[in-house]
Design a protein around this nucleic acid. Structure first.
Lengths: 231, 231
DNA sequence: CGGATCGTTGACAGGTATCAATGCTGGTGG
DNA sequence: CCACCAGCATTGATACCTGTCAACGATCCG
């Protein structure tokens, strides 16, 4: 389920400096001498679909940067159901609770094959003590999370089920044109939008019949203008 | 609408040190010498019900600590409706976006008479450069906001309208027993729970008829066990 | 006192949840 | 390689809930 490619500290650090998505992530502002302070290993971890990155109540020892793939943050409900409270993709951070030594609040589960960088909390804390340049990125990430949570609340929990599904599809399709994206299972779509699995299925099926959406396995493409009009 | 009691920097600083809710807020960890670094005025502002603390798109120059009262963060929707994305009360922070020099995202509006401390962003930034002791509180607050947003999402947007109203009442009543609390107008309740004003009204009225809820103006008390059972 | 705003209630239509049955498909083992 | 199975997706029937539109009562404030 979880296959780790372990690098030693040095090569991990070196990889961080050369990271293709560095601008997106935590270490964007760091300079050469800052990287030299990183003595704890940052590991790149690959998780298969349905694999668990961490569970709620796990000891919060790591912070994760998503390099590829899609993760869901799952909040269990007392009645046995669950709600997906966020989707994480390239450049997003998972497990920031760890920085406050609070247990993880939700489960982080991969929807498709996902690659993350696992950063020990102590590495962040150490770096924070030595250089001020990390804080800006940290607070920026926090605020981004907050902002996205608010958008989530106003986009995905308001209006009729058809409109919510349309918005979700646009979110999943992202900014890229004509490229395919990962379409979650109907149960997850339901948990994302606070609708039932059956309703999610009906609407997805309807979109497919109308030609607004084409799928092949979990890969999908949309007719963007048509979907936009349903919002 | 907005009545300001302006203190000069020194007395404001002195008041911060002696603040009754200091443990709840940003300056909990600060020591005497840290307070001496505060050269910018922190003002205490009183806002009447329906008063506006700030509006989305306002220049983000201040951060606010809620000392008393209740604020709603309002997100306008394209269709002219609005959604309340958070409620702020004693010890909460409003306008943390300002720390990242991002315009305020929502409107902050008082539900009842509210007292806040207005802290200039530069004061925070200055303090951050001089002492590391503020960061822990700041990140703790960010994380609290994130966590509450997720709880909001799972509590207030899931289940039937009756259950949502029950959860909201429990939230508003807080931990205190038998004390009255502020009950927002039906339109706000609707915007909080993603239900219509009419549905909110029906359910509140039903709770009142059942004796689970007693109101007098905007002041209310609940029969906690009964309400708990409706969740 | 009167008007404006807010809260309550009714009737009805439409949407969604629920329960249940039937297709579909990818993966497994013979 | 194929048959089979388990899990997922789809679809139908129905009841219930909520949104919508509309009217009326209550309350606050000038």
């Amino acid at each position: 389920m979880k296959s780790e490619n372990i690098d030693n500290a040095w090569s991990g650090t070196e990889k961080c400096r050369q990271c293709a998505i560095r601008a997106l992530v935590l270490f964007a502002d760091l300079q050469y001498e800052d990287f030299c302070l990183l003595h704890l290993p940052i590991e790149e971890i690959t998780i298969d679909a349905h694999g668990v990155l961490y569970e709620a109540q796990d000891a919060p020892r790591y912070l994760y940067t998503v390099r590829q793939g899609l993760l869901k943050l799952v909040h269990d409900l007392p009645d046995g159901n669950y709600r997906v409270v966020r989707l994480l993709r390239q450049g997003d951070l998972a497990g920031m609770e760890a920085l406050n030594h609070v247990n993880y609040i939700q489960h982080a589960i991969a929807l498709n094959t996902t690659v993350v960088c696992r950063i020990p909390v102590e590495a962040i804390e150490l770096l924070n003590r030595q250089t001020p340049r990390l804080y800006r990125q940290l607070t920026a990430k926090w605020q981004q999370i907050q902002q996205e949570a608010d958008i989530w609340l106003t986009e995905f929990t308001v209006g009729h089920a058809r409109q919510r599904v349309a918005k979700l599809l646009l979110f999943l399709a992202g900014r890229s044109q004509n490229t395919s994206f990962f379409l979650p299972g109907r149960e997850d779509i339901g948990a994302l939008l606070a609708i039932t699995t059956e309703t999610a299925s009906r609407i997805i099926a309807e979109f497919k019949r109308s030609g607004y959406l084409k799928t092949s396995g979990h890969s999908a493409t949309i007719d963007r203008p048509k979907i936009e009009r349903m919002k």
